[in-house]
């Protein structure tokens, strides 16, 4: 038995991968916004949840699932470049897991939020950064698109990831009493 890919990691990656396929194949995971880069996405959410709950390897595998979908659905040359499409997506899982692991001892909620922000930004900055380096985009345009995409994606991801991870772990956000 491979010592890194335990049964737990295989199964969790499989199930969260199923959600990625469900969101990706129906395109429910892409929210069209009018920028030349195409869609805002929630496809990074399973990646981040996997990274937080079961570590960098599960996160990286789920990032690969995400990458496959953007690669296939891509319409512009930048997203036909495997370096642009796969590398940042795989990195999402890894940076998320590392940020979470570094912070979780201080405060669970803060760790989840920071890890989500780190993961989302890894995606935006990674895709656009590599895009600029590979000459697909001028830097100023990349910054503009980046800000436009990162804000809604980060907020959406933070809301959902915090809700899922805290509900799963049973840790109440901020307070320990219901808001009644």
């Amino acid at each position: 038995m491979n010592s890194l890919l335990t049964i737990r990691r295989i199964v969790v990656a499989g199930l969260l991968g199923a959600i990625t396929i469900l969101l990706g194949a129906t395109r429910a995971g892409f929210i069209p916004v009018p920028t030349p880069l195409g869609d805002a996405t929630i496809m990074h959410i399973p990646v981040i949840i996997g990274g937080i709950l079961d570590g960098w390897l599960v996160g990286a595998i789920l990032g690969l699932f995400f990458g496959i979908f953007s690669f296939i659905h891509a319409t512009i040359p930048m997203f036909k470049d495997p370096l642009v499409v796969f590398l940042p997506r795989i990195l999402i899982g890894i940076t998320t897991a590392l940020a979470y692991r570094g912070l979780k001892r201080s405060n669970e909620v803060v760790a989840v939020i920071v890890a989500t922000v780190v993961g989302t930004l890894t995606n935006t900055v990674g895709v656009l950064g590599i895009g600029v380096l590979r000459g697909y985009l001028p830097l100023p345009a990349a910054v503009g698109f980046g800000v436009a995409a990162a804000i809604p994606e980060t907020i959406l991801a933070a809301i959902i990831v915090v809700a899922v991870v805290l509900a799963w772990r049973g840790v109440a956000a901020r307070r320990r009493t219901a808001d009644l």
């Binding site: 295989i10 199964v11 990656a13 499989g14 199930l15 991968g17 199923a18 959600i19 990625t20 396929i21 469900l22 194949a25 595998i61 699932f65």
Partner: peptide, 14 residues
């Protein structure tokens, strides 16, 4: 195995 579990559970989760 990961790929198979993922495909197998798409209709279930749907």
């Amino acid at each position: 195995l990961i790929g198979t579990i993922a495909l197998r559970f798409v209709p279930v989760l749907g």
